[in-house]
């Protein structure tokens, strides 16, 4: 097990190096500098600015010094908001995005998990078809459409819930979390249904039934652990999807999170901000993929052997 974890962690290092390097040089390919403005700038000011952002160095020196800063966790100053560092912007936006992603995941796991398990208990019955049809709708209805529709119904027509903001009024987190989580709830419903169906036909479930356990205990104590493995394996990629999905949801609901900062930075051509948050998000995603692989391996010893370092 430890060998497996160590091997997967070593694998993550080249991934991150590639992300950092590719992003760094791609950004340098972008047309126009951050200080190309209509107004003429005094040469000394220009020079000072370039020195501050290290633009006076050669490309390779810039890269080396960026890597050096990065090893201390320093992502440098923002191009667009002088005086603010990329670290500060991320620190301001990320907790909001993380909270949103957490609630969305909670919605997805609870609704999706229950729907999937319920459907799997009586396959090919009404109890199966209804949750699975709803799941299909969830998959096909993109958040950029679901969000506005939910706002229209619950925010405007019924006037039950606030339609924008974050921590401004009670209940303003419900619609964003449901919007972001619904597609994942649908996937989780399908995965947990398939996983449970496979597990329920196995010998150890028959054994559990044979020793006279009530059905709910068979499910909760024996079947769930095996049946949820596909869901756990899905959580890593799902987290990556939640982060990028939050770009749209934060835009719809005007939530001041990292996703919105990122999109704004893309419009403003705030290159250091884009670079810094790309690296930050990529690191997170790599970390969560790693985590979900490890948890999946921990839950299923057979998988552990299959994934063992070659």
């Amino acid at each position: 097990m430890w060998r497996f974890i160590g091997f997967r962690m070593l694998q993550a290092i080249p991934v991150l190096l590639v992300v950092i390097t590719v992003t760094f040089f791609l950004i340098r390919l972008a047309p126009g500098g951050p200080f190309d403005s209509e107004k003429a700038v005094i040469p000394e000011v220009q020079a000072a600015l370039e020195a501050q952002y290290r633009l006076n160095l050669t490309l390779f020196q810039q890269y080396a010094s960026y890597l050096g800063d990065l090893s201390h966790g320093n992502l440098g100053p923002s191009f667009k908001y002088p005086g603010r560092s990329v670290n500060e912007l991320i620190a301001a936006g990320f907790p909001v995005t993380a909270e949103l992603a957490f609630y969305a995941l909670l919605v997805a796991l609870v609704i999706g998990g229950i729907a999937g398990v319920v459907a799997s208990l009586k396959p090919n019955s009404v109890q199966d078809y209804i949750p699975m049809s709803v799941a299909m709708i969830g998959i096909c209805m993109p958040s950029l459409l679901l969000g506005p529709i939910l706002i229209l119904i619950f925010g405007i027509y019924l006037d039950w819930l606030p339609v924008s903001g974050w921590n401004d009024s009670p209940g303003d987190k419900i619609l964003p979390a449901v919007t972001l989580g619904s597609a994942y709830a649908a996937y989780i419903a399908r995965l947990s249904r398939a996983g449970m169906l496979e597990v329920m036909s196995q010998d150890y479930i028959r054994t559990a039934r044979a020793k006279g356990l009530p059905e709910w205990q068979v499910i909760s104590r024996h079947a769930l652990r095996g049946g949820m493995i596909p869901v756990i394996a899905f959580l890593g990629p799902a987290f990556a999807g939640l982060l990028s999905g939050s770009f749209v949801v934060e835009t719809i609901f005007q939530i001041p999170g990292l996703g919105r900062f990122y999109v704004q930075a893309a419009f403003n051509r705030d290159y250091t901000m884009i670079l810094g948050s790309t690296i930050f998000l990529a690191t997170l995603i790599v970390f969560f993929n790693l985590l979900s692989d490890i948890v999946a391996a921990w839950m299923n010893p057979r998988l552990r052997d299959k994934l063992r370092a070659p």
Binding site: A12, I27, S244, Y262, A266, R269, V286, N289
Partner: peptide, 21 residues
């Protein structure tokens, strides 16, 4: 393929759209 798989796609496409117009 494994390495690219671990990259955040959406972010990279936004990056490409910003850089190349």
């Amino acid at each position: 393929v494994d390495i690219i798989y671990a990259l955040p796609f959406m972010i990279f496409i936004i990056l490409l759209m910003v850089i190349f117009g």
